[in-house]
Design a protein around this nucleic acid. Sequence first.
DNA 1: ACTGTTTATGTTATCGTTACCCCGACTATT
DNA 2: AATAGTCGGGGTAACGATAACATAAACAGT
Lengths: 338, 338
Amino acid sequence: MPRRARVTLKDVSNECGYAINTISRAMRDDKKLPAATREKIRATARRMGYIPNSLASTLRSGRSHIIAVIVNDVHNQHFCVMLSKMDEALRQAGYNIMILCMQLDEALGEQMIHTAISQSVDGILYFPYHNNRTHIDYMVKNRMPFVLLDRWIQGIVADCVRCDDEQGGYLAGRHLIGLGHRRFLFLSGVLASSSQLDRHRGFLRALAEAGVSADSVRVVPWEAVSEGMMNEHMGPLLEPLDYTAILSFSDEIAYHALNTLRQQGRAVPEDVSLISFDHIRSGIPYLPRLTSIYAAEGDVAQAGVRLLLNRLKHPDLPTQVEILPVAIYDEGTTAPPA
Amino acid sequence: MPRRARVTLKDVSNECGYAINTISRAMRDDKKLPAATREKIRATARRMGYIPNSLASTLRSGRSHIIAVIVNDVHNQHFCVMLSKMDEALRQAGYNIMILCMQLDEALGEQMIHTAISQSVDGILYFPYHNNRTHIDYMVKNRMPFVLLDRWIQGIVADCVRCDDEQGGYLAGRHLIGLGHRRFLFLSGVLASSSQLDRHRGFLRALAEAGVSADSVRVVPWEAVSEGMMNEHMGPLLEPLDYTAILSFSDEIAYHALNTLRQQGRAVPEDVSLISFDHIRSGIPYLPRLTSIYAAEGDVAQAGVRLLLNRLKHPDLPTQVEILPVAIYDEGTTAPPA
DNA sequence: ACTGTTTATGTTATCGTTACCCCGACTATT
DNA sequence: AATAGTCGGGGTAACGATAACATAAACAGT
């Protein structure tokens, strides 16, 4: 058991007689070195248990081959799926992924960007949670390539991949209208986020097309929804019973509502229809599937990686924005009103 | 908008007239510098938007203040809870966390350790998934401090935190025996993992105490369980009906079983009792709670961090092993046999 | 006035790697 | 035979920070 510290290029150099420089090139598989020399050096390095020091490499070359993903909630199925896909896509392109989680705390968001820059990551995949320009400005100021995911930020022109939330809201609206519903309850998501606003707007567009006024939608604000979910106590939110269909911002919210409805003895979809967004598949088959709008997380993740890599290659490209289509998946939680 | 690259100590030095060294010490809040100078320098640095380069710092000082967590499945609720707790505990101690996911792929496991070393992390929190000495040896050979979590590896003497799986199995067994059950079905977890073996052993110990032989337990091997879960097709595994209670290795498996039982028209706990391990709380209230053995993830995570930090401070400490107590939580999925 | 100690800062040498430029020995061309 | 162009590889100086030592000034004590 050797007591020495980590093996370095210098050690390998001493061992096999080539200059450090040459060892380095062999490790990087530089084609200008003859294959025989390369293989000989690599064999020696392997035998000695050499592990390259990424930090030194990054410091010198200016490239870390690491992409940071800044996300606020790893618990969420939606993000887990995306993380997997991103990891896969990035690994294929020769990058490693670094997951930074900001735990719903606004101050920590800037902290995470700070960390990412400090670690010299090559780029950032950013899920904006707060509708906050500061974080974005911080990345711009530090010339850090980044792509916004899932949401856009008002007044910011930046590379962005998201799904067509407005169209999603529209599809949900048209679906319910088509079934004959005329009075709705909308359980809001995070306030002032673009997804929340767009979905709402699209929903109202579908209603307007059918001549149904915006007054027919009772909106439960996010604060109330959030508190209700925390305390498993959504009952009051679902009163009064002046609606026949519920539109929920996300499947997670919808499951809470579903539970409450069950406790109240109201059947879905017989007594009330329920439609939401995400179409998560939890892997737990006990959960009933929900009729909801599918956001194609995998595609969003993949497109995000593609745009970021593209940006890295061509820093002066004009702004890239990609909006992915959505579709409705009917799993039987909606029906014509009683 | 300055076109220049990142601000360095040198830039701050030029700006305010002190030597680079002095700037560095001001940034590290070295008390040997007069408070006035420190504050002046820090103000300038702040104004210039200076962000320290962790890589350079780590390269020179040999300390990264980063702990890697190597885990195989971020989707899993069990790990998500632990990750949160670890992040919190480490952040408090001045460390950052780096999450490395090995995606159930054995080869990638060594790759992840490689990456961690290459990034000069200060230590590793390792969830051994495969019963594989190689990975451990790799860390030892590279003198990387680490703590094993959740499981121990046969023949390895190393710092380790886990819950008392044997006792957990015993509690489950005693509970079912106490209700009057005598014939059991055991849905296995990953084969040859210490948790699987210990739980099984503990269960059999409870049976033996009551004079019930090991033959009364029909064991469904992990391969079959896993395949059944993939295809949502566990029906055949639960036949023939020669048992009155099911012991499941994890809640996740238990939910799959629960779903299958529901489809088969068998009621829990009236027709069959169900008990498992983990006691996950998914945050989705629609899911029924399961009677299961609680592993106190938060405590395991916290103890893991504590042991690792301790090891970093005292490299020559004897091996530390911590086994946390378990308890049974009755949520009503067990009852006396019909 | 001399020495010793403290205070406040500057100098130098790395950490491990890669970028850039260089050189000697061949081979190929004029 | 002289010139130019490969091939195979070496030498040196960074990247941005910190450790370890050095120094200049100020002050105290005898």
